[in-house]
Structure formats: C-alpha cells, structure tokens
Design a protein around this nucleic acid. Structure first.
Lengths: 233, 233, 233, 233
DNA sequence: GATGAATGAGGATTCATTCAT
DNA sequence: CATGAATGAATCCTCATTCAT
C-alpha cells in the first residue's frame, strides 16, 4: 500500500468537506499524474491535464507541488513499494519448498505491484532514465537493489537446500526479473497494441515463466522433473 | 490509414535511393534523431538539437522531413531490422541442434541488432507506445510478429526433433523475448544507472539466460542435462 | 474622478476612526504595505507578503482593502504628512532670522518626515508616477504644492527682510527641495548600495546644503558672510 | 553616445535587408525596453510590449536576450554613459574659470545625458535598487563614483585657484548631484504630473541652481559677488 | 470576522515551423 | 539547396481575488 495515507481519510467522516478535500488533494493529483506520466511520458504530459484529471484547477496543483518536476519526483517516491522489507520478513519463516517460495513471491508481487498502477513507475524509470538520472539512482537504491537481494536470497536458499543446481546468481536473478519487467512493459503498451498482445494472461504467463525457470534450475540429481511448483510442496 | 505509408516506404525503398540517402543529409539526421529520441524521448528532443548533431541547420531538417513527427516515423522505419527474413532463410538449411540454433540466433541478434543503435527503437516503442499507437502497430507487424514466428519456429523444431519437451509456445516465446528485451532496456539506461548495472556483460548474460532456458526446456527423457549448447554441436 | 475620494478620506478621517484603525489590522497592513511597496515597487510586491508581514492571512487583507490597487492608494493617503498646515501656522509667529527659519524647517522635516518610513512615499511617487498618475496628481495637490508654497513663503520673508538677495523663487524653491529629495532617494537605496553611500550623515548633509544655500542667497550688501544659521540668531 | 553602435548601421546600405534588421534588432529592443522600464518599472513591463514596441514578436526578443532580467541588465549596461573619461580628459586642458568649467560640465551633461532617454537609467536605479542590488553596485562603480570624482576634481580646482572658499568636498559634491538628479526625476514624472511642473525649463533650472551654488561657494575675499559664471570668463 | 484552499487570467519562456535571403 | 531570423501557439508557473468553512 504505497499511498496508504491517501486512502484512509474516507473514515474521518466528521471532518469538514473542504478539509477532507485538502487532505485528499495530493493523493488525487499523484494518481492522476502517475497515470498520465506513464501514458504519455513526462514531457508530453501537461500539468493542466493532470489537474483536470484530479478534478482541480491548474493553480491548485502548484499549491501542493512546487513544479512539474517535483510532482514527477513525488509520483515516483510515493509509488515505490515498501513490500520488499515485508516480504523479506515473511521469508524468514517460510517453510515450504523454494519453488513454492518463488511462486508465492512472483504472484504476490504481481497482485500488489505488477497489476497495480504503481507498476507504471517501472516503465517510467525506463523511459525517463536519461532525463532524471538522480531519480533512477534513487529507484535503484530503493527498489532494484533490494529486489535483487530478495531474489538472490531465494535462489541461495534453493541452492543451499539442494533444490536448485549451482547457479551463477549474478545472472540468475535476471532470469526472474526479466520476465516480470517484460510483463509490465507489455501491460503498459496495451492501450496502443494489437489484440494479439491482449491474449497475454498475466497469471498464466507468470506460471509459464516460472515453470521454465524451475525446470532449468532443478538440481540434476533431483531425479524426476521438478514439475509444477505447487505439486512439489 | 495508420501504417499504410510505412509499408510503402519500407518496401519501395530501392537500393539506389537508399545509397543516395545514406551518404547524404537524411541519413545523418536520422542517426542523430535516433540517438536523441532514444536518450530523451520524442517530446523532450528538440529538432534544433537533432539538426545540430547532424551538422546542419534547423531549416535543413525540414527540407527532408515534413515535421518532427514525420522524422520520428522515419527514424523508426529506417531502423527496423530486415534481418528476420534473412534469418528465416538461413534456418531452412540449418543442420545443427536446436540448442545451437537458438544460440546462433540470439548471438546474431545481439551482434546485429541488440548491440547497435537500432536497438534503441525497442526502447522507443515502449516509451512512446501510447503517443504513437499506429507506429507501434507497424512495429508489431514488421518486427514483433515476425520475431515471434521465428522463435516459434525454432521451438517447434526443437519439439519436433525431441530435443525439447512439450511447451506451450504462446508463452515459451516470451522466455526468449523477455531476457533480450530486458537486456536492451538495461543497456539504454546505462547513462543514468549505478555502476553495479555496468557489470552486466551482454554475452555472458545471453549465455546464462540461454543455459537456463535450455535446461528448462530439455526433454525429460533426455537423460543427462542438455549441457551447454555448444557441446551439443 | 481621480482624486475626489482621496480628499474625502483625508479630511473626513475623524480622530476616533483613526484611533480605532491604528490599533487594528488596517494600520498594520498599511505599514507592511508601505515598507514593501517602497522596497520592491507596486508590481513586484505580493499581497500575500504584505499580509504575512502584518501577521494576517491573505484573505484578511481583502477584508479591509478592495484590491491591491486600493491598498496602494490607501498607503499613499495615510502616509501623506499633514505637517504643512502645522508648520505654516508656526511660521506666523516665528521671530528669528530666516536662516534659522530654514534650518528649523529642514530639520523638523527631516525628523518628522524624512527619517520616518513615510518618506518612502516620496520614492513611491517617483517610481510609480506613470502607473498611478491620479495618485501623483493627488500627491502634488496635497504635498508638493503646499510644500512649494511653504518654502516660497520662507524665501519671500528672507527677501523682504533684506536677508536674501533677490531670487527667482520659481527656481529657488528647488534649491531646497532637490537636496532633500536626493537625501530621501539615497536613504531608500541603502539596502542595495555600496558602503561609501552609508557615510552620508543626514544631519551633516542637511547642514552642509543649507550652508551653501544661505551663502548663495545672502544679500550682497550683507557685509560679512551669513555664517552658520545658528550663529545668526 | 551610449548606444552609438545602434545608430550607425543606417549607413551600411549595401547590406541585405534581413541582415540589417538583424543587426538593428538588439538596439531597437533595448530602446523600447529602456522606455518601458523607465515608464512602468521592471515588473510592470511585459516583454511582449517591449517586443511590440520594437516591431518584433515576443519570440524574437528571446533570440537576443536570455530572459527579461538579462534584457534589463543589458538596458542598464548599454545606456551607461562613457562620457566621464572623455570629460575628464577635456578638463585637463581647460583654461577658463572654474565657474565656467562647472557651467560647461552641467550643460554638457544635460545635453548628452540628462535630456536623452539614457537619463531614465538614473530613475531606474532608484526605483529598482532593492530588486537589483548587483546592478546598482555596477552603476555605482561605473557612473556614480566616477561622477563624484569628476565633480570633486572641479571643486578642488576651484579651491586651489582661490575661486571657491574651503569646502567639505564630501558634501559639496551632492550640491551638484542633487539638483541634477532631481531634474531627471522631475522630467521622468512628466507624463503623470500636473502642468505646473512642466514649467520647469531645464536650461534655466540648471543656470539657477548653478548661480546659487557659485554664490554659495565663492571665496569670501573675492570682494564682489561671483556673478554669473559666463561673466567670470 | 478570519482563514487559506481554490481559482484562472495573465505573463515569461520554449520550440516547431516558415520563409526571405 | 541551405540558412537562421522570425513567428506565435503552447505550456509552465504566478498571484490577485473569491468564498466556503
């Protein structure tokens, strides 16, 4: 819940309308901005359009964000998932097979990040990388590196438990990241893509990629094929 | 008539015309434009900068391209690889294992597309998808679908020859595409990314991904692990 | 009706009303506005800044003043000195030399106008003359012309008493006004001027100018030089 | 001739029209800007208005000046008179009385600076002092200090030759500066001032002030009154 | 009254595009 | 052909003013 604070003020029903709106403004603007920046890119998005989509006037936007660029930075910062720590913690007590672990991991990621508007940040980091290098560095620190570490940890567990063969982790992590990144990119081109692309069912796609990876990583002595992750549990 | 003209340009382009253009202004402008569009995006790129990088004046650019948008379309059209047909032809007479085939395929693609400036088009199609839907459709027709078909053909060969287990091809093609796309995206963020990312050696990355995929796809009855592709030759 | 309302405000302002205002918001706002208008000019001053300096909110300012322009007019009207009548009355009963009279006059003016924030109005009338012609006309009526008349009266007394030589009063009044105006302008540039300027000691400056003028105006038959004004008393 | 370079391109008749205009643009813009800045102040002047008065479009202005502020600085720098050095040189060989010298000095100043549009810079330095402190410092260095030095030099000559009594030069220079500054300020309020003010004839005003000063400064032993400056030659 | 959130007209600045030379 | 000066529509941002609370 990256922007949790913007969702929970529905409950404070006793607050005056104007007040409640004021509280909600930044969140509404950030949501509108995220959608538009992802859709059209930073430069091609007009602040007036962002304001309009948030249901306010141009001037109001500048009441909450000093400039278009600050808005952009806020959009990125606000939508960066804090799930990594949470997931790291959950994995400490995970008891099942590492295949299951990976399955859980990817599906949870999809449900809470990939399938949400927050996934647009990923596209944004690719599109605007050269225009906002310091934001990319920030994203790298906050999301990419922790993400790498988490995946690495899972793979190490698999190797330690003899479930996976010996892998070059520096490259193996990309075997997980690449399909997920690709999925997000594909999703965010939907509005512009041919029907054929729509056929890409995220859950089935994830399952398929996972299956291939687990096959590919299974320890050679593991007799039978690793099969579907759930089956191995 | 979104992509009508693109087909014409592509197919009618006689060799003579191409030769003339290559050594003249338009080529330099297209190269400069490609670099800048990839680096900064369409909206954030100024035509004056393109002209300057090509060593001509702003006015000259409009002598060759009706508008910034036409320039963008030309950039995409001119940099779309025509390798697919060529490769399709080569594969008709390929004699080695399918693992080798895939290895050849990916490395050839990297050398002739991925490692060249033309790979930027891929990033461009992701970044600008929503702003130029008809261009994406064109790219889909000209590059993505043929690419899918080519990969599919390779995988089908592997299955037909008993080298690969039975795969759901609709998803298996993405197992090849995703890592390659990811690699391109990563390369194009270099200018803005942390040193850690620089460690990504393309050739090793490709080999690693391929190894995992081949392991993952190897026919279950294939006794031993499929091993490195080269070993199968 | 450029200055109709200004006269009313000025003359109808009962003491009671003034007292009430002084201790209330409007007075603080007028003070803050005067300072800022003098410092930055009308256009470059933001009403929000005025309100903030007066310790109230932006909205409150508009409770007391219909618009920024009305605020400006009020600032000018409220800070126009009513000393002229007072001084005119005092001079009816003045007994000393005219040199003393002028000395008194200039020093009193400096103490009660020149050295106070009200002197900023003078700068304002110069800076904003072309933007607020009707205000300048009002100022002309209320301050400049009475000021001219007062000085003229003093000079005429000097001539009548044989203390001064025959002067062209139309120009002689400026010999008094110019140095005083210059002093005010210099003071109001202090915040931006070089240290050298700071050396300008107002009292000494006034004495020096006065000395030169009295020398220059002394009746030719007056034997000795007129000397310092105090000495002549 | 502060903006000499902008007046002399009329002679290069052989140059193409576009070229000539290009050369003339900055000068036309600077002239228009000077007029408007003096009239309305920096903040209240719209760049579009400056451009319109110079007969060009908004965009053209930004072809020659990076920003409104740069335009302002250029206006000030271009209109700062370089007469001081010239006059300093002339005075080395001046043979007449110091009274004549001062008379020459002030009238020359009026003809070449005071009566020209360049005099507006003086008003500008007063009005905008607090908004452009660094420009004021520059003006101080380039104009005020050299001006002080020049006047000082004249007064010292008068004292050395026994024409003037012993003066406190630190304050005496202001006796010259103040009336001239006042004259400029008065002239620049004309557009907004009452008819009475118009009666101020610059040449007569200068003569009158000069007369008073010379009387005031004449050496006490000089028997008769110093008389009109011309008479002393 | 007092507040400050909201507005939107206005102004500085940019940049694709035109066109005279 | 090539140029680059000129244009003005488009866009970011400011700020005087309003008004619901």
């Amino acid at each position: 819940m990256p922007n949790a604070k913007f969702h929970c003020d529905q409950h404070q029903a006793s607050v005056a309308k104007r007040e409640r709106r004021k509280e909600a403004r930044p969140g509404e603007l950030l949501n509108a901005a995220l959608d538009l920046f992802v859709e059209k890119g930073f430069a091609a998005t007009r602040v007036e359009e962002v304001a309009a989509r948030a249901g306010v006037s141009k001037g109001t936007l500048f009441l909450y964000f000093q400039s278009k660029e600050e808005l952009f930075k806020a959009v990125v910062c606000e939508n960066i998932s804090g799930h990594l720590k949470e997931w790291n913690a959950q994995f400490d007590s995970f008891e099942g097979s590492t295949a299951d672990m990976l399955d859980c991991c990817l599906n949870a990621w999809w449900d809470r990040v990939g399938a949400t508007r927050a996934s647009g940040i990923n596209k944004l980091m690719v599109s605007e990388a050269r225009n906002f290098p310091e934001l990319v560095a920030f994203y790298q620190q906050e999301v990419v590196l922790p993400g790498h570490a988490l995946i690495r940890r899972v793979l190490e567990r698999g190797m330690a438990r003899g479930e996976f063969r010996v892998l070059d982790l520096d490259y193996a992590v990309y075997s997980v990241l690449a399909p997920m990144t690709f999925l997000i990119m594909a999703q965010h081109c939907m509005g512009a893509c041919v029907p054929a692309q729509i056929a890409l069912d995220p859950k089935k796609y994830i399952a398929a990629q996972l299956s291939t990876l687990l096959h590919g990583w299974s320890a050679p002595t593991a007799g039978a094929a690793p099969g579907e992750p759930k089956a191995g549990a």
